[in-house]
Amino acid sequence: MLNIFARASLSRLTNPIGAGLVRLGLSPNAVTVVGTTLSATAALWFFPRGELFVGTVVVAVFLLFDIVDGAMARAGGRASRFGGVLDASCDRLVDGALFGALVWWALVVEVDRLRGLGLLICLVTAQVISYVKARAEANGLRADGGLAERAERFLVILVGTGLHGLGVPYVLDVAVWLLVVMSLITIAQRLVAVHASYRAGESGEGHP
């Protein structure tokens, strides 16, 4: 849901920026790689050190590259299948770096096993959610939507880390376990969507 509404609103800002970067000679793929490198580096630097508020702000800023590269591809007419694969792969790297850094902080720095377990589940389910969609599309099926798409996952966890960094009690644990539930529901939703897509295609095969 946020992917639809947030991107529609932000596109009014990012489309001119994307067009300007294309005129400067930059490529969407280069921006994707730079954004991924900065986001992952920020997460791996700040979160394991316990600097959750600063890390949240920096990571959130660098995540905007994920929107700008799409605007650049549209503005320059340079969208490609390779660019789509590169973007999806870089998204998985950022997801892994962010949640992996938080798992390290929770288990090694804070020695909070319960919080670490929740974050580890978030890390795994984030990858599975994306994998279900990719695998479905590779087989000509659909697995769109779900309660916790990437935008929702980042919103929930970064609000939790940001407020925890400001000293607000319990909010991070609530965010983590809320995201666990949302992610598990999303996996189920996508598998149901894949099954429905499969059944629809199977029914259609018998009709000219």
Rank of each mutant, 00 (worst) to 15 (best):
residue 52 L to D: 02
residue 55 G to W: 00
residue 55 G to V: 05
residue 56 T to H: 02
residue 57 V to S: 03
residue 58 V to Y: 01
residue 59 V to E: 01
residue 61 V to D: 07
residue 62 F to G: 08
residue 62 F to N: 10
residue 64 L to V: 14
residue 64 L to C: 14
residue 64 L to I: 11
residue 66 D to S: 06
residue 66 D to P: 06
residue 67 I to S: 04
residue 68 V to M: 06
residue 69 D to N: 05
residue 70 G to P: 02
residue 70 G to V: 03
residue 72 M to Y: 14
residue 74 R to N: 09
residue 74 R to M: 04
residue 79 A to F: 05
residue 80 S to L: 09
residue 80 S to Y: 15
residue 81 R to W: 06
residue 81 R to H: 08
residue 87 D to P: 04
residue 87 D to K: 08
residue 87 D to R: 05
residue 88 A to K: 13
residue 89 S to N: 09
residue 89 S to F: 15
residue 93 L to I: 15
residue 94 V to N: 04
residue 95 D to A: 15
residue 98 L to I: 11
residue 102 L to A: 12
residue 103 V to H: 01
residue 105 W to N: 05
residue 106 A to R: 03
residue 107 L to H: 09
residue 108 V to G: 07
residue 108 V to Q: 05
residue 109 V to H: 13
residue 109 V to Y: 10
residue 109 V to K: 14
residue 109 V to W: 10
residue 109 V to P: 09
residue 110 E to S: 10
residue 113 R to P: 03
residue 113 R to D: 12
residue 113 R to K: 13
residue 115 R to P: 11
residue 116 G to R: 01
residue 117 L to M: 06
residue 118 G to Q: 01
residue 118 G to L: 05
residue 118 G to I: 03
residue 122 C to P: 02
residue 123 L to A: 08
residue 123 L to R: 09
residue 127 Q to V: 07
residue 127 Q to H: 10
residue 128 V to L: 10
residue 130 S to L: 05
residue 130 S to F: 05
residue 130 S to V: 09
residue 131 Y to K: 03
residue 135 R to H: 03
residue 137 E to W: 00
residue 139 N to L: 02
residue 139 N to V: 00
residue 141 L to F: 14
residue 142 R to Y: 01
residue 143 A to K: 07
residue 145 G to C: 08
residue 145 G to V: 08
residue 147 L to F: 11
residue 147 L to K: 08
residue 147 L to G: 10
residue 148 A to R: 05
residue 148 A to G: 12
residue 149 E to F: 15
